[in-house]
Design a protein around this nucleic acid. Sequence first.
DNA 1: GTTTAATTGACAGTATACTTACAAACTGCC
DNA 2: GGCAGTTTGTAAGTATACTGTCAATTAAAC
Lengths: 169, 169
Amino acid sequence: MPSKQAPITMDAVYAAPGYLFRRMQQIAVALFMEECAAFDLTPVQYAALVAIHTHPGIDATRLSAVIAFDRSTLGSVIERLEAKKLIDRKPSGEDKRVKLLYLTRSGAAALRDIMPSVAKAQARMLQPLKPADRKVLLGLLTQLVDLNNEASRVPLRAEDALEHLGRSG
Amino acid sequence: MPSKQAPITMDAVYAAPGYLFRRMQQIAVALFMEECAAFDLTPVQYAALVAIHTHPGIDATRLSAVIAFDRSTLGSVIERLEAKKLIDRKPSGEDKRVKLLYLTRSGAAALRDIMPSVAKAQARMLQPLKPADRKVLLGLLTQLVDLNNEASRVPLRAEDALEHLGRSG
DNA sequence: GTTTAATTGACAGTATACTTACAAACTGCC
DNA sequence: GGCAGTTTGTAAGTATACTGTCAATTAAAC
């Protein structure tokens, strides 16, 4: 008895969680860009600014671990932030390879100013759901990202996990 | 009384749904590429193959609407699929601008063969959740993508919505 | 303490994702 | 049936996201 193949329908795409995450990510970026149009900042650049604000003097490799973005990609992100004079890069005295990252005055101001628009964008993308469903989704999504952390190409390593790195703890 | 600013913490990134969707999308791609390493196909290329299989003779613009991927991007995706001889592009007799897309024999075989690995990848990304939670998340995610459809840069237009287009209904 | 290994930032190359612009072709209006 | 506006595919430009590789530097091993 030959094994009958299920016919291939568009559900093989539409019902795949991977497809839905891709769509939702694109929607998230579109809403961010719409709400934050006045600031000339991308979601990735925003995340980098927050991390540099929270960890002044962080280097690019650790920044990559703290926001879970690819190190190579982050190179050009940093370049652009530096070109816009939102961050400064200073050589480390301890390690000649390392360049430490700091917000400029203008970078700190930009971050402060963009926060309400970011919050608006984040709220808008969950808006269509009932308030209770928003909480459920956000909870499950947070869990899922956390539990799949190691499957990521660039797993998140929050600051605690980085303390043993750095200057030879 | 000066309005007190909430201090900016990494939660401004970690708790943002947009950030979580980005992370999850990256995890989804990583799992897809891992499971499907033997096939030299990306998630986007897979979705395009499914859509061309389901809609033989579709053109690039309608393909873009059916999978909700950007038209410009899709141009190079199609180029690569054609270079790999997985699809054919034939001029339309009715409209000299249009190039119709078809799976080649080898493209149909590739699609058939990759399906189990795709299914495995899709299952793996939800695996860490309890079965009941998987259903809840997938349901809410499907709803959310659907309800935010118009916020997308390239809203999904399923085949029904496309019927009035095409050869001058 | 010198060979070895690991780390850092940089670069090249591929693949999405979006923007605007464009020529060719089609459609609608009159 | 011809002009206006639209659609199709394409291209150029920017921004992620990843793979490698590389030189310089540092740390670890012995």
